[in-house]
Design a protein around this nucleic acid. Sequence first.
DNA 1: CTGGATTCTGCACACGTGCCCACATAATGT
DNA 2: ACATTATGTGGGCACGTGTGCAGAATCCAG
Lengths: 339, 339
Amino acid sequence: MSVAQDHDKPADRRRRVTAQAVADAAGVSRSAVSRAFTPGAYLDESKRRIIEKVAHHMGYQPNALAAGLKDGRSHLVAVFVGNMRSTYDSEFVSALVGKLNALNKWPILIDGGDQRAEDAIEQVLRYPLDALILRGGSMPRALVTRCTKFGVPMISTGRIVQSPGVDNVCCRNADGTGLAAQVLIDKGRTRFGYLGGAPSFSSSAERRLGVIDVLDKAGLKLIAEATGDFTVETGRKIALKLLAEHKLDALVCANDASAIGALTAARELGLDVPCDLSLIGFDDIEMARWPNFDLSTVNNPIDDAVDQVIALLERRLAEPGKQSETIMIDPFFVPRGTH
Amino acid sequence: MSVAQDHDKPADRRRRVTAQAVADAAGVSRSAVSRAFTPGAYLDESKRRIIEKVAHHMGYQPNALAAGLKDGRSHLVAVFVGNMRSTYDSEFVSALVGKLNALNKWPILIDGGDQRAEDAIEQVLRYPLDALILRGGSMPRALVTRCTKFGVPMISTGRIVQSPGVDNVCCRNADGTGLAAQVLIDKGRTRFGYLGGAPSFSSSAERRLGVIDVLDKAGLKLIAEATGDFTVETGRKIALKLLAEHKLDALVCANDASAIGALTAARELGLDVPCDLSLIGFDDIEMARWPNFDLSTVNNPIDDAVDQVIALLERRLAEPGKQSETIMIDPFFVPRGTH
DNA sequence: CTGGATTCTGCACACGTGCCCACATAATGT
DNA sequence: ACATTATGTGGGCACGTGTGCAGAATCCAG
């Protein structure tokens, strides 16, 4: 039990295997070990093989903290998620995490829904982050400038942040709902309603305008509208009221969750969807495809958006001082059974 | 443009503000700055205030990489998620992330569903992780031993990993489905079916046994069973077949998603739930509460489980050599409209 | 054998911090 | 007045790595 380790430290807490230990065991210098783990480095092939074998056996990997300290690049990326409970955000983050992993960038998740989110950001800035990715939600202006001051590149998606040094990836929301509205107009619908999300979210406002503009060109107007919070439960509650008070034949919703809530409400009220009422969502989450919903909706392309975020990240790392960009993504209509 | 920074380095890439820079600006020693950011440290109060002000103005925070390198504790926690698309796992991770953030532990997410997950784990081990948390899914045995070799404490939840140095938090699955089955028996149901998940997941097997044991005590047997993959789509497909081929009056499902699929199937087949058929899920995800499902289910307590994971983490960090523990969580029946 | 070219390797520095230690100053006790 | 204690401060080491540099080793042609 009291047998000492190779080194004479008290070693109350077991430390990591170090490059020096591997070097000693393999009978080479520490530099050689370091080179064995550096892709383009100059090292005799046979020696490299020996070192790799010994290292694997001892359970050695270069310490990423030390490496990051050396070259100022941590490979850590903070991901600030507005609302992790939201289905779309959750699908988005899932895709994002997968692609970051594949790139050997490590996503640190921060729950923006939490009260202490600001504090969390402040704390996580202690790491020299490669970037901070914002997914939806709203981050206080002050925090954005604070991050810029720390020199952390920011990439926002789902909400445009107008600030020098912040790159954006965003969906052409108005185009999306415009497409949907046009389909309904072509079908002969005339009595339109809009079921929005929280007004502080620009996406809901943009989507609303998309409907209004297209209606306007056709000489039509919104007959009724109401504001929810992007969730199924609230969507249902709001829609029950909206549909009872107004005789609508078309309802465009700010997102799929709201639309699914509205669909439930319509059925509870005895309305036949799509005969009596056309119903359209936004996002095209997996649930929209379920046979019991079969929701007509606007696809908000996750893979495209994530790819653009990754591309922006790589460009930004290659050229830290570059002009900030805003990439727009084109949504498209997905016809299913509710329109 | 060619104006040099305070220091005479070429500074092609802008570096972080350092403690030395703050010390120079505030007219104190670097040690003083360090102390200003160390909670219990000895420093004149007025001096501390000055330093804090200057530091905030310059955008200084201690570099967590350097600090971690120094004391061998990175405050990073890898979270390996079996399937981020699963609703329950996503709710679980959301809760876990929130509580880790509150503790100033930073969760690095790894998507276990991805092909390259093994490689990702190998790479992320370069960071001296405080711990590795496994949520569901299945991690290859070899990787587990590899992590242990690296001295990274592991906490598994949703699936018990029998290995020295791995702590576990797990639900008493059999008890849960047993409770549900008993309720149905008391209601007079006799013709039971079980809709399971992938058999490689121990949770599904345990839940199945829970039903069988209770049926056995009542002199009953499973009439039919089928195996899905925990998703709504597959649940529906399997249930369509199962319900068409057997005249059941009770169907216990391995999880809520399967149950919701089965509910859809039952309705498509014209069955009245709960009159003709009692249907019970497992997990109690948010969706189970939606009025259009109103699913009777077994609550698989997320908050309790996450709290236990956090507690285990803290105990493990306080005493790295401690015996590994297995904490069992008690699920409970949630009566709603489908039984 | 010798000089030069080529291939390989070890030394030592820097990255930014926390903390121990020695020391300086102020406060207190005899 | 001096000894002793409390309080505050700066110097410097260690954490583990990547890499420039100079020098060692090897090889080849003359």
